[in-house]
């Protein structure tokens, strides 16, 4: 059994517009039988934070192309992507790439 986890979620680059313009969310993830990995976190976000226009954030069970995921300031690819197991007080950032100049 995994204990509840407190993590900070941040959305930027326009991704925050899918979350009522709120960039920082302190969330508590409930106890669940298995560990909390990013795959589970995305499902939790889909069910608890993201109310509409899911396709602007996700594609399949991952984030859509053009969104960079950071775990504690590092590219999630360095951390195991969807399989990374969240630790208490982790900071997860979702940044949409910008196309303006």
């Amino acid at each position: 059994m995994a204990a509840p986890l407190c993590v900070q979620l941040e959305f930027g680059g326009g991704a925050e517009l899918l979350f009522d313009g709120v960039r920082k969310h302190q969330v508590t993830l409930p106890i669940q039988p298995g560990p909390w990995d990013i795959r589970c976190l995305l499902v939790w976000i889909k069910e608890n934070l993201l109310k509409e226009r899911l396709e602007l954030f996700m594609q399949g069970d991952s984030v859509r192309p053009g969104i960079l995921v950071l775990i504690n300031e590092a590219d999630w690819e360095l951390m195991g992507e969807l399989d990374y197991q969240l630790q208490d007080q982790d900071n997860v950032v979702f940044i949409s790439t910008l196309h303006g100049g």
Partner: peptide, 13 residues
Amino acid sequence: LFPKPPPPETVTN
């Protein structure tokens, strides 16, 4: 970093 382009409807100018 970005092997796939973003879906066009997700891009803002």
